[in-house]
């Protein structure tokens, strides 16, 4: 128990250092993009956040399969940590995407395939978390949640394919010099994006592991409560029986 906080602190320091490096690169080092200007710097937040949200789905899928195979609670904890952190990252991806789209495309929302996919996945994993909140804790909840998590993961490529078809069928209501967003991702831009992605991945691991720890504590509390109520029950039943034995003659007399 004593060694654990040290690792966490080191990891936190590592995350902070990488984040500081990312900030420096994003705001001071990488040159301004010629078409969009400064707002293009949103890329270095938006894309890494989106990337980690996708990693979260893979994590949920792997953890769910592993849980169904091994029935080890740790996999379930990992899936919860992945889902909750993933929902946070997906929400951030959506918000940053919308705030970026408004000045560049003139609209808050477009039918862009990746945005649509993330929105739907966001809803699926919110439902996953709500299911866990509604269902009484226990083996059944873990098992059913793993099934939902897996169905969501299986759905991901299908949703993406559908969203792409949709985007092609409904050209977005976006025109103008900023509509083609295919700015090249090489040189300093690519390097900054790479560093930012690594930094956000490290941050994701940190946040998810904190959530994992919290989940473990919750389980511990539950186990302790059960132990205490069992103890109380045992005390109550034993004292009950001694009482009835001792009171029986008294009542008889």
């Amino acid at each position: 128990m004593a060694a654990l906080p040290k690792i966490r602190l080191i990891w936190l320091g590592f995350t902070a250092a990488l984040m500081a490096l990312t900030l420096w690169m994003v705001f001071l080092w990488v040159p301004t993009e010629i078409n969009q200007g400064n707002i293009q710097r949103a890329l270095y937040f938006h894309v890494p956040v989106a990337w980690t949200a996708m990693v979260a789905i893979v994590l949920i899928a792997v953890a769910s399969v592993a849980y169904l195979k091994t029935r080890d609670e740790k996999w379930d904890r990992l899936a919860v940590a992945g889902a909750e952190t993933g929902v946070i990252f997906a929400a951030l991806m959506l918000i940053t995407g919308m705030v970026w789209a408004k000045p560049v495309w003139g609209v808050w929302w477009t039918g862009e395939a990746k945005l649509t996919t993330t929105l739907i996945l966001f809803f699926i994993y919110v439902a996953y978390l709500m299911f866990r909140a509604y269902f009484p804790p226990g083996e059944q909840r873990r098992r059913l949640a793993a099934i939902i998590g897996l169905i969501g993961a299986i759905d991901t490529p299908i949703i993406y394919y559908g969203a792409q078809l949709w985007e092609r069928a409904h050209p977005s209501a976006v025109v103008g010099p900023y509509s083609n967003n295919d700015s090249s991702v090489d040189g300093p831009v690519g390097l900054t994006l790479l560093v930012a992605t690594i930094a956000f991945s490290v941050l994701f691991v940190y946040v998810a592991s904190e959530r994992y720890r919290l989940r473990k504590q919750e389980d511990e509390v539950m186990a302790l409560r059960r132990a205490i109520s069992l103890q109380a029950l045992r005390v109550a039943t034993t004292s009950d029986s001694t009482e009835s034995i001792s009171s029986a003659p008294a009542g008889g007399a």
Partner: peptide
């Protein structure tokens, strides 16, 4: 293409950039 100038206004967009930054961090 003919679009509103507002879209390309670099100075105005900094507010949006700041919003993106602050939302990301406030969220975490």
């Amino acid at each position: 293409a003919v679009v509103d100038r507002e879209q390309g206004d670099l100075e105005r967009n900094l507010g949006f950039l700041f919003a993106i930054y602050i939302v990301t961090w406030a969220g975490f």
